[in-house]
Nucleic acid binder design. Structure first.
Lengths: 226, 226
DNA sequence: TATCGGTCGATACACTGTATCGCTCAACCC
DNA sequence: GGGTTGAGCGATACAGTGTATCGACCGATA
């Protein structure tokens, strides 16, 4: 039976009151502070003042804890707006926002099947807002936007981490890569790439995300009459 | 102890000749066979008939090994074609193909900055083929396609795994989820979603991928004159 | 009151990435 | 050439991981 429908064990009066919610909240706090690799069952249990094995009354596996964490983040993703385009745009923005608040989210999305209640609720909102659009288009459209968002969010977080671990902002980081890239490009093996890096536009993260999203939505729009 | 009774030192095994290539190839074989979590420095070293610490002469960190593995897969990704659209389509297909041959690739792409030679060579090919397209469009276009592919490939691999771990094909798996989804939908909390799942199209993986990619490429095309 | 069933934490196990540290051996310099 | 050095190598060690097992406890039931 899946975590989602398996009932929590009955509330026990004694030592430290525990619940999936408390466990997940603690895990998320750890992940927010120090990244996913800081989330271990022992640490979560320690935060809650409890032995590690105690958690296995609430989850069967660490993976299930991660699933619960992801679903909890989906609770923050509340798409809204009128019409398919506004809603899909809102879905993308909200997902991106969640990944900025919880960078570890980017490591997890798309990596396991998500069928938790908050995830489904998010899907419900989107599905409801697609009203009128032919399902033959609506379904792949949602899938395409989701796929784009997953990839875009991962790239953005990856880049942010790279910048942070070198203690630099975007410009400094690109400059710091200079030595390696300059030597590499100096070999002459990547002339077109060198030209693109040298002459291409340097868009900030916001604009990059929105431009790509625009492509996807425009492509979808071309298939929707009206 | 006198020499006479002291045993000779154990026959020294001639150290196995090692190289990054050999290490990476072994790691990839392990990952292909049993997934990413089967790749440990100890196992890789064992396959090569070598102590684990030996690897640290070639890499500083396990993450570096993973980076090398990813770059090695990029060697298989050789986009081709005439014109920006064909090339971007080919890039997407080739990436997807690589992820099907190396499912673990889907766990890694987009997760770390990729600056390896094969990755750059792949970028070079794409950049070169965008000739003529305004860089103001070309750069975000490549980014958008890449993002879409990352997300789509992750979803596809995730789904494939879910099906496989239950020993079912797509239809069976959807049927097996039935009980959970039916109960969940029976609560009436997700009417629109239930309708979509019930009435929506059931596309196979190929068509889903291509349809989404079509959206992205169409959206890009709308920004490119001619 | 005695028993029972479920829950708790301690302990244990196999495994991980990697730091440390002698040892060995080939190459170098005097 | 002989002594020294420096690099490569493996054994050992350490702190940490997810989780199986199991004895002890405790509340509810008979």
């Amino acid at each position: 039976m899946l975590v989602w429908e398996r009932p929590e064990p009955p509330e026990r009066p004694v030592p430290a009151p525990l619940s999936r919610e408390r466990i997940v909240r603690s895990a998320i706090r750890l992940a927010d502070a120090d990244g996913l690799e800081a989330v271990s069952l022992r640490k979560v249990a320690a935060v809650l003042g409890v032995g590690p094995m105690r958690l296995y009354g609430y989850i069967d596996t660490k993976e299930e804890l991660l699933d619960l964490m992801v679903d909890q983040v989906y609770a923050e993703i509340r798409p809204s707006g009128d019409g398919w385009r506004e809603v899909l745009h809102s879905l993308a923005d909200a997902t991106r926002g969640a990944a900025q608040r919880h960078e570890w989210f980017a490591d997890l999305i798309g990596g396991r099947p998500q069928l938790g209640p908050h995830t489904l609720a998010c899907g419900e909102t989107v599905a409801a807002a697609m009203g009128g659009v032919d399902l033959e288009v609506a379904v792949p459209a949602i899938g395409a936007v989701t796929a784009y968002v997953v990839g875009a969010v991962r790239r953005e977080v990856t880049e942010r981490r790279a910048e942070r671990t070198s203690g630099m902002d975007t410009e400094q980081w690109q400059a710091a890569l200079g030595p390696y890239l300059r030597r590499t490009f100096a070999t002459g093996r990547f002339p077109a790439l060198a030209a693109v890096v040298h002459d291409g536009p340097h868009l900030d993260a916001d604009r990059t995300f929105r431009t790509g999203l625009g492509f996807v939505l425009d492509g979808i729009g071309a298939r929707i009459p009206g």
